[in-house]
Design a protein around this nucleic acid. Structure first.
Length: 503
RNA sequence: GCCCCCAUCGUCUAGAGGCCUAGGACACCUCCUUUUCACGGAGGCGACAGGGGUUCGAAUCCCCUUGGGGGUACCA
Protein backbone atom coordinates (compact mmCIF):
# COMPACT_ATOMS: atom_id res chain seq x y z
CA UNK A 1 0.00 0.00 0.00
CA UNK A 2 1.16 3.43 -0.95
CA UNK A 3 2.07 5.77 1.84
CA UNK A 4 0.54 9.19 1.61
CA UNK A 5 1.40 12.39 3.38
CA UNK A 6 -1.25 13.44 5.92
CA UNK A 7 -2.03 16.55 3.92
CA UNK A 8 -3.30 14.49 1.02
CA UNK A 9 -7.08 14.47 1.13
CA UNK A 10 -8.84 11.24 1.71
CA UNK A 11 -9.50 9.16 -1.36
CA UNK A 12 -11.53 6.03 -0.92
CA UNK A 13 -9.35 3.00 -1.57
CA UNK A 14 -9.92 1.18 -4.83
CA UNK A 15 -11.41 -1.73 -3.03
CA UNK A 16 -13.16 -1.59 0.25
CA UNK A 17 -13.07 -5.27 0.91
CA UNK A 18 -10.25 -4.71 3.36
CA UNK A 19 -11.84 -1.63 4.88
CA UNK A 20 -15.09 -3.41 5.60
CA UNK A 21 -14.98 -5.35 8.79
CA UNK A 22 -17.70 -7.39 10.37
CA UNK A 23 -20.94 -8.16 8.64
CA UNK A 24 -22.39 -5.66 6.26
CA UNK A 25 -25.97 -4.67 6.94
CA UNK A 26 -27.46 -1.94 4.82
CA UNK A 27 -30.99 -0.74 4.41
CA UNK A 28 -33.29 1.15 2.12
CA UNK A 29 -35.68 3.40 4.03
CA UNK A 30 -38.34 4.70 1.66
CA UNK A 31 -41.30 6.64 2.92
CA UNK A 32 -44.60 5.52 1.40
CA UNK A 33 -45.69 9.00 0.40
CA UNK A 34 -45.43 8.26 -3.30
CA UNK A 35 -44.59 5.57 -5.82
CA UNK A 36 -41.08 4.12 -6.04
CA UNK A 37 -39.04 6.99 -7.42
CA UNK A 38 -36.04 6.42 -9.65
CA UNK A 39 -33.80 8.23 -7.18
CA UNK A 40 -34.88 5.92 -4.39
CA UNK A 41 -34.48 2.96 -6.70
CA UNK A 42 -30.93 3.98 -7.59
CA UNK A 43 -30.13 4.27 -3.89
CA UNK A 44 -31.58 0.79 -3.54
CA UNK A 45 -29.31 -0.43 -6.33
CA UNK A 46 -26.18 0.89 -4.62
CA UNK A 47 -27.24 -0.57 -1.29
CA UNK A 48 -28.04 -3.91 -2.86
CA UNK A 49 -24.78 -3.99 -4.81
CA UNK A 50 -22.75 -3.18 -1.72
CA UNK A 51 -24.54 -5.76 0.42
CA UNK A 52 -24.23 -8.53 -2.15
CA UNK A 53 -20.61 -7.69 -2.87
CA UNK A 54 -19.77 -8.21 0.78
CA UNK A 55 -22.12 -11.09 1.36
CA UNK A 56 -24.11 -8.92 3.74
CA UNK A 57 -27.77 -8.12 4.22
CA UNK A 58 -29.98 -5.68 2.41
CA UNK A 59 -32.88 -4.68 4.65
CA UNK A 60 -35.99 -2.63 4.13
CA UNK A 61 -37.63 -0.16 6.44
CA UNK A 62 -40.85 1.59 5.55
CA UNK A 63 -40.73 5.08 7.03
CA UNK A 64 -44.40 5.76 7.49
CA UNK A 65 -44.26 8.11 10.44
CA UNK A 66 -45.79 10.95 8.44
CA UNK A 67 -49.34 9.70 8.88
CA UNK A 68 -50.79 12.51 6.83
CA UNK A 69 -49.02 11.57 3.66
CA UNK A 70 -48.27 7.86 3.99
CA UNK A 71 -50.50 5.41 2.17
CA UNK A 72 -50.48 1.62 2.08
CA UNK A 73 -50.81 1.45 -1.70
CA UNK A 74 -47.52 3.29 -1.99
CA UNK A 75 -45.85 0.67 0.18
CA UNK A 76 -47.19 -1.96 -2.22
CA UNK A 77 -45.93 -0.03 -5.21
CA UNK A 78 -42.46 0.32 -3.66
CA UNK A 79 -42.18 -3.34 -2.75
CA UNK A 80 -43.45 -4.45 -6.15
CA UNK A 81 -41.05 -2.11 -7.90
CA UNK A 82 -38.03 -3.38 -5.98
CA UNK A 83 -39.05 -6.95 -6.63
CA UNK A 84 -39.50 -6.29 -10.33
CA UNK A 85 -36.06 -4.70 -10.52
CA UNK A 86 -34.57 -7.80 -8.97
CA UNK A 87 -33.50 -6.04 -5.78
CA UNK A 88 -34.42 -8.76 -3.34
CA UNK A 89 -34.27 -7.84 0.32
CA UNK A 90 -33.53 -9.87 3.39
CA UNK A 91 -36.22 -10.57 5.96
CA UNK A 92 -39.49 -8.78 6.44
CA UNK A 93 -39.58 -5.01 5.96
CA UNK A 94 -39.51 -3.11 9.23
CA UNK A 95 -42.55 -0.89 9.61
CA UNK A 96 -41.34 2.24 11.33
CA UNK A 97 -44.70 3.26 12.77
CA UNK A 98 -44.76 0.02 14.73
CA UNK A 99 -41.62 1.02 16.56
CA UNK A 100 -42.96 4.21 18.10
CA UNK A 101 -42.49 2.99 21.66
CA UNK A 102 -38.79 2.47 21.05
CA UNK A 103 -38.62 5.97 19.61
CA UNK A 104 -40.40 7.44 22.65
CA UNK A 105 -38.10 5.52 24.97
CA UNK A 106 -35.08 7.02 23.25
CA UNK A 107 -36.53 10.49 23.60
CA UNK A 108 -37.23 9.84 27.27
CA UNK A 109 -33.63 8.77 27.63
CA UNK A 110 -32.40 11.99 26.04
CA UNK A 111 -34.69 14.00 28.28
CA UNK A 112 -33.38 12.20 31.34
CA UNK A 113 -29.76 12.62 30.35
CA UNK A 114 -30.23 16.33 29.70
CA UNK A 115 -29.52 16.06 25.97
CA UNK A 116 -33.09 17.09 25.22
CA UNK A 117 -35.55 19.53 26.69
CA UNK A 118 -39.03 20.88 26.20
CA UNK A 119 -39.47 24.03 24.17
CA UNK A 120 -42.68 25.95 24.70
CA UNK A 121 -42.28 28.46 21.91
CA UNK A 122 -45.38 28.60 19.79
CA UNK A 123 -45.80 28.93 16.06
CA UNK A 124 -46.26 32.70 16.14
CA UNK A 125 -43.17 33.28 18.25
CA UNK A 126 -41.02 31.14 15.99
CA UNK A 127 -42.34 32.83 12.88
CA UNK A 128 -41.59 36.24 14.36
CA UNK A 129 -38.10 35.10 15.24
CA UNK A 130 -37.42 33.88 11.70
CA UNK A 131 -38.80 37.01 10.12
CA UNK A 132 -36.53 39.13 12.25
CA UNK A 133 -33.55 36.99 11.25
CA UNK A 134 -34.49 37.27 7.59
CA UNK A 135 -34.86 41.03 7.89
CA UNK A 136 -31.37 41.22 9.36
CA UNK A 137 -30.09 39.00 6.58
CA UNK A 138 -29.12 36.29 8.99
CA UNK A 139 -29.57 32.58 8.54
CA UNK A 140 -32.89 31.43 9.95
CA UNK A 141 -32.28 29.26 12.96
CA UNK A 142 -33.85 28.45 16.30
CA UNK A 143 -32.21 30.66 18.90
CA UNK A 144 -32.28 28.05 21.64
CA UNK A 145 -34.41 30.40 23.74
CA UNK A 146 -35.88 27.67 25.91
CA UNK A 147 -32.75 25.63 26.29
CA UNK A 148 -32.14 26.48 29.95
CA UNK A 149 -35.49 27.46 31.35
CA UNK A 150 -35.65 27.96 35.10
CA UNK A 151 -38.30 25.97 36.98
CA UNK A 152 -40.18 29.23 37.44
CA UNK A 153 -40.19 30.05 33.73
CA UNK A 154 -41.24 26.54 32.85
CA UNK A 155 -43.96 26.68 35.48
CA UNK A 156 -45.28 29.87 33.96
CA UNK A 157 -45.58 28.32 30.50
CA UNK A 158 -47.29 25.31 32.01
CA UNK A 159 -49.71 27.57 33.87
CA UNK A 160 -50.50 29.19 30.52
CA UNK A 161 -51.46 25.74 29.30
CA UNK A 162 -48.77 25.75 26.62
CA UNK A 163 -47.82 22.60 24.78
CA UNK A 164 -44.24 21.76 23.97
CA UNK A 165 -42.02 20.19 21.36
CA UNK A 166 -38.91 18.33 22.45
CA UNK A 167 -35.61 19.65 21.25
CA UNK A 168 -32.20 18.05 21.11
CA UNK A 169 -29.30 20.25 22.20
CA UNK A 170 -26.80 21.07 19.50
CA UNK A 171 -23.74 22.87 20.78
CA UNK A 172 -22.64 25.66 18.49
CA UNK A 173 -19.07 24.73 19.21
CA UNK A 174 -19.50 21.10 18.21
CA UNK A 175 -17.47 19.88 15.26
CA UNK A 176 -18.86 16.80 13.57
CA UNK A 177 -16.62 14.80 11.29
CA UNK A 178 -16.88 11.51 9.50
CA UNK A 179 -15.18 9.59 6.75
CA UNK A 180 -17.63 9.41 3.90
CA UNK A 181 -17.13 6.44 1.63
CA UNK A 182 -17.59 8.54 -1.47
CA UNK A 183 -16.60 12.03 -0.33
CA UNK A 184 -13.76 11.42 2.07
CA UNK A 185 -13.43 13.51 5.21
CA UNK A 186 -16.56 15.48 6.00
CA UNK A 187 -16.70 18.23 8.57
CA UNK A 188 -19.66 20.14 9.91
CA UNK A 189 -19.92 22.88 12.50
CA UNK A 190 -22.66 22.54 15.12
CA UNK A 191 -23.47 26.22 14.64
CA UNK A 192 -24.52 25.50 11.05
CA UNK A 193 -27.18 23.01 12.04
CA UNK A 194 -29.92 25.52 12.70
CA UNK A 195 -30.04 25.45 16.47
CA UNK A 196 -31.47 22.81 18.79
CA UNK A 197 -33.50 20.45 16.65
CA UNK A 198 -37.00 19.24 17.23
CA UNK A 199 -37.14 15.49 17.77
CA UNK A 200 -40.78 15.20 18.89
CA UNK A 201 -43.81 17.09 17.65
CA UNK A 202 -45.78 19.45 19.83
CA UNK A 203 -47.81 17.72 22.52
CA UNK A 204 -49.10 18.35 26.04
CA UNK A 205 -46.11 19.02 28.23
CA UNK A 206 -46.43 15.82 30.22
CA UNK A 207 -46.28 13.69 27.10
CA UNK A 208 -43.88 12.86 24.29
CA UNK A 209 -45.25 13.88 20.92
CA UNK A 210 -44.76 12.12 17.61
CA UNK A 211 -41.05 11.34 17.14
CA UNK A 212 -39.46 13.00 14.11
CA UNK A 213 -37.30 11.80 11.27
CA UNK A 214 -33.73 12.32 12.47
CA UNK A 215 -34.44 10.72 15.81
CA UNK A 216 -36.30 7.69 14.52
CA UNK A 217 -33.75 7.00 11.81
CA UNK A 218 -30.98 6.81 14.36
CA UNK A 219 -32.98 4.67 16.77
CA UNK A 220 -34.01 2.28 14.03
CA UNK A 221 -30.66 2.07 12.27
CA UNK A 222 -29.07 1.27 15.62
CA UNK A 223 -31.73 -1.31 16.44
CA UNK A 224 -31.32 -2.92 13.04
CA UNK A 225 -27.56 -2.96 13.52
CA UNK A 226 -27.05 -1.13 10.24
CA UNK A 227 -23.34 -1.05 9.40
CA UNK A 228 -23.41 1.29 6.41
CA UNK A 229 -25.89 4.02 5.58
CA UNK A 230 -25.89 4.58 1.83
CA UNK A 231 -28.16 7.42 0.71
CA UNK A 232 -28.32 10.46 -1.53
CA UNK A 233 -26.18 13.51 -0.90
CA UNK A 234 -29.29 15.50 -0.04
CA UNK A 235 -28.95 13.85 3.38
CA UNK A 236 -25.51 15.20 4.22
CA UNK A 237 -26.77 17.77 6.73
CA UNK A 238 -28.95 15.09 8.35
CA UNK A 239 -25.89 12.94 8.83
CA UNK A 240 -24.26 15.61 10.95
CA UNK A 241 -27.36 15.83 13.14
CA UNK A 242 -27.71 12.09 13.36
CA UNK A 243 -24.10 11.63 14.39
CA UNK A 244 -24.80 13.85 17.39
CA UNK A 245 -27.79 11.69 18.24
CA UNK A 246 -25.73 8.49 18.02
CA UNK A 247 -23.30 9.92 20.53
CA UNK A 248 -26.00 11.13 22.91
CA UNK A 249 -27.79 7.79 22.74
CA UNK A 250 -24.60 5.84 23.27
CA UNK A 251 -24.76 4.00 19.96
CA UNK A 252 -21.88 3.32 17.60
CA UNK A 253 -22.59 5.15 14.34
CA UNK A 254 -22.54 3.32 11.01
CA UNK A 255 -20.26 4.21 8.13
CA UNK A 256 -21.84 6.73 5.76
CA UNK A 257 -21.78 6.95 1.99
CA UNK A 258 -23.49 9.86 0.24
CA UNK A 259 -24.14 9.15 -3.38
CA UNK A 260 -24.55 11.73 -6.14
CA UNK A 261 -28.07 12.71 -7.12
CA UNK A 262 -29.88 11.94 -10.34
CA UNK A 263 -30.49 15.21 -12.14
CA UNK A 264 -33.04 16.22 -14.76
CA UNK A 265 -32.22 17.73 -18.17
CA UNK A 266 -31.74 21.12 -16.50
CA UNK A 267 -29.29 19.71 -13.99
CA UNK A 268 -31.58 19.93 -10.98
CA UNK A 269 -32.55 17.15 -8.60
CA UNK A 270 -34.98 14.89 -10.40
CA UNK A 271 -38.46 15.26 -8.93
CA UNK A 272 -41.95 14.06 -9.63
CA UNK A 273 -42.55 17.18 -11.63
CA UNK A 274 -40.07 15.97 -14.22
CA UNK A 275 -42.60 13.62 -15.78
CA UNK A 276 -41.75 9.96 -15.73
CA UNK A 277 -39.85 9.20 -12.54
CA UNK A 278 -41.69 6.22 -11.08
CA UNK A 279 -40.35 2.75 -11.60
CA UNK A 280 -43.86 1.54 -12.34
CA UNK A 281 -44.09 4.15 -15.10
CA UNK A 282 -40.92 2.88 -16.74
CA UNK A 283 -42.29 -0.61 -16.47
CA UNK A 284 -45.55 0.23 -18.17
CA UNK A 285 -43.71 2.16 -20.87
CA UNK A 286 -42.06 -1.07 -21.86
CA UNK A 287 -38.61 -0.78 -20.32
CA UNK A 288 -37.08 -3.97 -19.05
CA UNK A 289 -35.94 -4.26 -15.46
CA UNK A 290 -32.57 -5.46 -16.71
CA UNK A 291 -31.95 -2.34 -18.78
CA UNK A 292 -33.30 0.04 -16.16
CA UNK A 293 -31.21 -1.41 -13.37
CA UNK A 294 -28.16 -1.43 -15.65
CA UNK A 295 -28.72 2.21 -16.48
CA UNK A 296 -29.27 3.28 -12.88
CA UNK A 297 -26.01 1.60 -11.90
CA UNK A 298 -24.19 3.55 -14.60
CA UNK A 299 -25.54 6.81 -13.21
CA UNK A 300 -22.74 7.63 -10.81
CA UNK A 301 -20.81 4.39 -10.83
CA UNK A 302 -18.42 3.21 -13.51
CA UNK A 303 -17.46 -0.38 -14.12
CA UNK A 304 -13.78 -1.34 -13.98
CA UNK A 305 -11.76 -1.20 -17.19
CA UNK A 306 -12.67 -3.90 -19.65
CA UNK A 307 -16.03 -4.78 -18.16
CA UNK A 308 -18.14 -2.90 -20.67
CA UNK A 309 -21.27 -1.00 -19.88
CA UNK A 310 -23.76 -3.80 -20.18
CA UNK A 311 -23.96 -6.04 -17.16
CA UNK A 312 -26.36 -7.78 -14.81
CA UNK A 313 -26.83 -6.87 -11.16
CA UNK A 314 -24.85 -9.96 -10.20
CA UNK A 315 -21.94 -9.03 -12.43
CA UNK A 316 -21.92 -5.50 -11.02
CA UNK A 317 -22.14 -6.79 -7.45
CA UNK A 318 -19.02 -8.88 -7.98
CA UNK A 319 -16.90 -5.77 -8.56
CA UNK A 320 -18.87 -2.98 -6.90
CA UNK A 321 -17.10 -0.57 -4.59
CA UNK A 322 -17.42 3.08 -3.58
CA UNK A 323 -14.04 3.99 -4.98
CA UNK A 324 -15.72 3.99 -8.38
CA UNK A 325 -18.72 6.06 -7.35
CA UNK A 326 -18.57 9.56 -8.77
CA UNK A 327 -19.09 12.64 -6.62
CA UNK A 328 -20.91 14.87 -9.09
CA UNK A 329 -24.61 14.54 -9.88
CA UNK A 330 -25.60 12.68 -13.03
CA UNK A 331 -28.10 13.88 -15.58
CA UNK A 332 -30.73 11.42 -16.63
CA UNK A 333 -30.44 10.61 -20.33
CA UNK A 334 -33.27 8.89 -22.19
CA UNK A 335 -31.11 8.15 -25.23
CA UNK A 336 -28.78 5.94 -23.28
CA UNK A 337 -31.59 4.17 -21.44
CA UNK A 338 -33.30 3.52 -24.75
CA UNK A 339 -30.12 2.15 -26.24
CA UNK A 340 -29.63 -0.15 -23.27
CA UNK A 341 -33.21 -1.35 -23.48
CA UNK A 342 -32.80 -2.03 -27.18
CA UNK A 343 -29.67 -4.03 -26.46
CA UNK A 344 -31.57 -6.18 -23.99
CA UNK A 345 -34.44 -6.73 -26.42
CA UNK A 346 -32.17 -7.52 -29.39
CA UNK A 347 -30.46 -10.23 -27.48
CA UNK A 348 -33.63 -11.83 -26.20
CA UNK A 349 -34.40 -15.44 -27.10
CA UNK A 350 -37.41 -15.44 -29.48
CA UNK A 351 -39.38 -17.63 -27.12
CA UNK A 352 -38.73 -15.31 -24.17
CA UNK A 353 -39.68 -12.32 -26.28
CA UNK A 354 -42.84 -14.15 -27.40
CA UNK A 355 -43.82 -14.75 -23.79
CA UNK A 356 -43.43 -11.06 -23.03
CA UNK A 357 -45.28 -9.92 -26.13
CA UNK A 358 -48.17 -12.39 -25.85
CA UNK A 359 -50.14 -10.44 -23.25
CA UNK A 360 -49.62 -7.21 -25.19
CA UNK A 361 -50.82 -8.88 -28.38
CA UNK A 362 -53.75 -10.44 -26.56
CA UNK A 363 -54.82 -6.99 -25.42
CA UNK A 364 -55.30 -6.20 -29.10
CA UNK A 365 -57.06 -9.48 -29.71
CA UNK A 366 -54.14 -10.91 -31.66
CA UNK A 367 -52.63 -14.35 -31.73
CA UNK A 368 -55.38 -16.31 -30.09
CA UNK A 369 -56.71 -18.23 -33.10
CA UNK A 370 -55.91 -19.20 -36.65
CA UNK A 371 -52.41 -19.65 -38.06
CA UNK A 372 -51.25 -16.64 -36.03
CA UNK A 373 -51.84 -18.56 -32.83
CA UNK A 374 -49.13 -21.08 -33.62
CA UNK A 375 -46.23 -20.79 -31.23
CA UNK A 376 -43.69 -21.56 -33.92
CA UNK A 377 -45.03 -18.87 -36.23
CA UNK A 378 -45.00 -16.39 -33.37
CA UNK A 379 -41.43 -17.29 -32.52
CA UNK A 380 -40.37 -16.65 -36.10
CA UNK A 381 -42.13 -13.31 -35.99
CA UNK A 382 -40.32 -12.45 -32.77
CA UNK A 383 -36.97 -13.40 -34.26
CA UNK A 384 -37.75 -11.15 -37.22
CA UNK A 385 -38.81 -8.17 -35.14
CA UNK A 386 -36.36 -8.40 -32.22
CA UNK A 387 -33.44 -6.46 -33.78
CA UNK A 388 -35.58 -3.41 -34.45
CA UNK A 389 -37.13 -3.02 -31.01
CA UNK A 390 -36.28 -0.27 -28.57
CA UNK A 391 -39.22 -0.69 -26.23
CA UNK A 392 -41.27 -3.81 -25.73
CA UNK A 393 -44.28 -1.89 -26.99
CA UNK A 394 -42.54 -1.57 -30.37
CA UNK A 395 -43.21 -5.28 -30.70
CA UNK A 396 -46.90 -4.48 -30.87
CA UNK A 397 -46.64 -1.64 -33.34
CA UNK A 398 -44.34 -3.54 -35.63
CA UNK A 399 -46.35 -6.75 -35.44
CA UNK A 400 -49.47 -4.98 -36.57
CA UNK A 401 -49.21 -5.79 -40.30
CA UNK A 402 -48.71 -9.45 -39.43
CA UNK A 403 -51.92 -9.75 -37.45
CA UNK A 404 -54.14 -7.34 -39.35
CA UNK A 405 -54.34 -6.19 -42.95
CA UNK A 406 -52.60 -2.81 -43.11
CA UNK A 407 -53.99 0.28 -44.76
CA UNK A 408 -51.36 1.29 -47.36
CA UNK A 409 -49.75 4.64 -46.66
CA UNK A 410 -49.20 7.35 -49.27
CA UNK A 411 -45.75 6.13 -50.27
CA UNK A 412 -47.00 2.56 -50.65
CA UNK A 413 -49.93 3.74 -52.76
CA UNK A 414 -47.58 5.70 -54.98
CA UNK A 415 -45.36 2.67 -55.41
CA UNK A 416 -48.32 0.47 -56.36
CA UNK A 417 -49.42 3.04 -58.92
CA UNK A 418 -45.98 3.28 -60.49
CA UNK A 419 -45.03 1.78 -63.82
CA UNK A 420 -44.81 -1.97 -63.83
CA UNK A 421 -45.85 -2.45 -60.24
CA UNK A 422 -49.26 -4.01 -60.75
CA UNK A 423 -48.28 -6.24 -63.68
CA UNK A 424 -45.34 -7.53 -61.65
CA UNK A 425 -47.53 -8.28 -58.67
CA UNK A 426 -50.09 -9.96 -60.93
CA UNK A 427 -47.35 -12.13 -62.38
CA UNK A 428 -46.21 -13.10 -58.90
CA UNK A 429 -49.78 -13.84 -57.88
CA UNK A 430 -50.14 -16.19 -60.82
CA UNK A 431 -47.03 -18.06 -59.78
CA UNK A 432 -47.95 -18.20 -56.09
CA UNK A 433 -47.95 -21.77 -54.71
CA UNK A 434 -50.82 -23.20 -52.70
CA UNK A 435 -51.62 -21.64 -49.36
CA UNK A 436 -50.98 -23.63 -46.25
CA UNK A 437 -47.59 -24.80 -47.43
CA UNK A 438 -44.31 -23.52 -46.19
CA UNK A 439 -42.42 -21.31 -48.59
CA UNK A 440 -38.68 -21.65 -48.51
CA UNK A 441 -36.39 -18.67 -48.90
CA UNK A 442 -34.90 -20.18 -52.07
CA UNK A 443 -38.36 -20.74 -53.50
CA UNK A 444 -39.35 -17.19 -52.71
CA UNK A 445 -36.25 -15.77 -54.39
CA UNK A 446 -36.81 -17.92 -57.47
CA UNK A 447 -40.44 -16.84 -57.70
CA UNK A 448 -39.41 -13.21 -57.43
CA UNK A 449 -36.94 -13.57 -60.30
CA UNK A 450 -39.44 -15.40 -62.45
CA UNK A 451 -42.26 -12.94 -61.90
CA UNK A 452 -40.03 -9.97 -62.53
CA UNK A 453 -38.81 -11.27 -65.85
CA UNK A 454 -42.30 -12.32 -66.94
CA UNK A 455 -43.60 -8.85 -66.21
CA UNK A 456 -40.54 -7.31 -67.76
CA UNK A 457 -39.60 -5.22 -64.71
CA UNK A 458 -36.47 -5.03 -62.65
CA UNK A 459 -36.46 -7.24 -59.59
CA UNK A 460 -36.08 -4.16 -57.44
CA UNK A 461 -39.39 -2.82 -58.68
CA UNK A 462 -41.11 -6.03 -57.76
CA UNK A 463 -39.44 -6.15 -54.34
CA UNK A 464 -40.51 -2.64 -53.55
CA UNK A 465 -44.01 -3.25 -54.80
CA UNK A 466 -44.31 -6.50 -52.91
CA UNK A 467 -43.33 -4.69 -49.73
CA UNK A 468 -45.98 -2.06 -50.40
CA UNK A 469 -48.56 -4.77 -51.05
CA UNK A 470 -47.69 -6.89 -48.04
CA UNK A 471 -46.92 -4.25 -45.40
CA UNK A 472 -48.68 -1.19 -46.75
CA UNK A 473 -45.39 0.62 -46.25
CA UNK A 474 -42.03 0.98 -47.96
CA UNK A 475 -40.20 0.29 -44.76
CA UNK A 476 -40.15 -2.75 -42.55
CA UNK A 477 -38.39 -5.96 -41.68
CA UNK A 478 -36.74 -8.36 -44.10
CA UNK A 479 -39.06 -8.78 -47.09
CA UNK A 480 -38.61 -12.45 -47.86
CA UNK A 481 -39.06 -13.46 -44.24
CA UNK A 482 -42.12 -11.24 -44.01
CA UNK A 483 -43.58 -12.89 -47.09
CA UNK A 484 -42.87 -16.37 -45.80
CA UNK A 485 -44.64 -15.57 -42.53
CA UNK A 486 -47.68 -14.31 -44.40
CA UNK A 487 -47.83 -17.22 -46.84
CA UNK A 488 -49.22 -20.23 -44.92
CA UNK A 489 -52.41 -18.39 -43.98
CA UNK A 490 -52.93 -17.26 -47.55
CA UNK A 491 -52.69 -13.68 -46.39
CA UNK A 492 -50.05 -12.95 -49.02
CA UNK A 493 -52.46 -14.01 -51.75
CA UNK A 494 -55.23 -11.76 -50.43
CA UNK A 495 -52.96 -8.76 -50.18
CA UNK A 496 -51.49 -9.37 -53.62
CA UNK A 497 -54.95 -9.64 -55.09
CA UNK A 498 -56.15 -6.36 -53.73
CA UNK A 499 -52.92 -4.60 -54.62
CA UNK A 500 -52.47 -5.92 -58.14
CA UNK A 501 -55.85 -4.77 -59.33
CA UNK A 502 -56.61 -1.14 -59.97
CA UNK A 503 -59.00 0.11 -57.32
C1' G B 1 -28.74 35.25 2.96
C1' C B 2 -25.95 31.28 5.47
C1' C B 3 -23.70 26.27 5.39
C1' C B 4 -22.04 22.20 2.55
C1' C B 5 -20.90 19.65 -1.91
C1' C B 6 -19.42 19.44 -6.99
C1' A B 7 -16.73 20.84 -11.81
C1' U B 8 -13.18 16.27 -18.23
C1' C B 9 -16.64 15.92 -25.19
C1' G B 10 -23.99 17.80 -25.93
C1' U B 11 -24.85 13.49 -22.02
C1' C B 12 -22.80 9.34 -18.74
C1' U B 13 -17.84 8.66 -17.60
C1' A B 14 -12.08 6.74 -17.56
C1' G B 15 -8.10 9.35 -15.36
C1' A B 16 -4.83 8.84 -8.45
C1' G B 17 1.83 13.94 -11.16
C1' G B 18 5.19 11.54 -16.64
C1' C B 19 1.49 5.85 -19.45
C1' C B 20 -2.64 11.86 -22.33
C1' U B 21 -1.54 13.72 -29.15
C1' A B 22 -6.98 12.92 -22.69
C1' G B 23 -9.62 6.69 -23.44
C1' G B 24 -14.71 4.43 -23.65
C1' A B 25 -20.22 4.56 -24.07
C1' C B 26 -24.83 7.22 -25.72
C1' A B 27 -26.30 10.92 -29.20
C1' C B 28 -24.88 13.10 -33.94
C1' C B 29 -22.39 12.68 -39.04
C1' U B 30 -20.12 9.51 -43.07
C1' C B 31 -19.33 4.90 -45.28
C1' C B 32 -20.15 -0.55 -45.58
C1' U B 33 -23.95 -4.24 -45.08
C1' U B 34 -29.30 -4.86 -46.24
C1' U B 35 -32.54 -4.08 -53.44
C1' U B 36 -36.22 -0.80 -47.66
C1' C B 37 -36.10 0.72 -42.33
C1' A B 38 -33.80 -0.96 -38.28
C1' C B 39 -29.81 -4.27 -36.41
C1' G B 40 -24.67 -5.01 -37.17
C1' G B 41 -19.62 -3.34 -38.78
C1' A B 42 -15.84 0.62 -39.91
C1' G B 43 -14.61 5.63 -39.48
C1' G B 44 -15.54 10.88 -38.00
C1' C B 45 -17.03 15.22 -34.93
C1' G B 46 -16.35 16.45 -29.92
C1' A B 47 -13.96 18.08 -23.38
C1' C B 48 -9.81 18.98 -18.95
C1' A B 49 -14.64 26.24 -16.70
C1' G B 50 -10.97 30.61 -15.95
C1' G B 51 -6.73 32.55 -13.37
C1' G B 52 -2.77 32.00 -10.18
C1' G B 53 0.64 28.86 -7.66
C1' U B 54 3.67 23.94 -6.29
C1' U B 55 6.78 20.83 -9.60
C1' C B 56 11.85 19.26 -14.19
C1' G B 57 6.70 17.92 -15.44
C1' A B 58 -0.43 19.27 -13.59
C1' A B 59 -6.73 16.97 -16.22
C1' U B 60 -4.52 15.09 -11.61
C1' C B 61 -1.94 18.71 -5.68
C1' C B 62 -2.95 23.96 -3.35
C1' C B 63 -5.43 28.90 -3.59
C1' C B 64 -8.80 32.37 -5.80
C1' U B 65 -12.69 33.39 -9.27
C1' U B 66 -16.75 31.68 -11.96
C1' G B 67 -20.52 28.30 -12.70
C1' G B 68 -23.77 24.40 -11.04
C1' G B 69 -26.13 21.57 -7.26
C1' G B 70 -27.86 20.26 -2.30
C1' G B 71 -29.40 21.75 2.48
C1' U B 72 -31.28 25.35 5.63
C1' A B 73 -39.20 22.11 8.84
C1' C B 74 -43.03 20.58 14.55
C1' C B 75 -41.57 16.24 5.88
C1' A B 76 -38.93 12.06 5.07
Amino acid sequence: MRVRAPSVPFRPPRSFSMAVTGSVRVRLAPSPTGTLHIGTARTAVFNWLFARHHGGSFLLRIEDTDRERSRPEYTDNILEGLHWLGLDWDGEPVIQSERIEAHRAAIAQLLASGHAYRCYANEAELTAMRELQQAQNRAPRYDNRHRDLSPEQEGAFLAEGREAVIRFRIDDGAVITWQDLVRGEMRWAGSDLGGDMVIARRAPADQIGDPLYNLVVVVDDAAMAISHVIRGEDHIANTAKQLLLYAALGHTPPVFAHTPLILNQEGKKLSKRDGVTSISDFQSMGYSAEALVNYMTLLGWSPPEGMGERFSLEQAAAVFDFGRVNRAGARFDWDKLNWLNGQVLHGLDPEILRQQLLPLWAARGWGSDGPCAEADWQRQLCALLAPSLTLLADGVEQALPFFTRPEPDAAALAQLASDGARPALAALLALLPEDGEALSAEQAQALLGQAASQAGVKKGVLMKSLRAALLGSLQGPDLVTTWRLLHPSGEDRLRLQSSSTVP
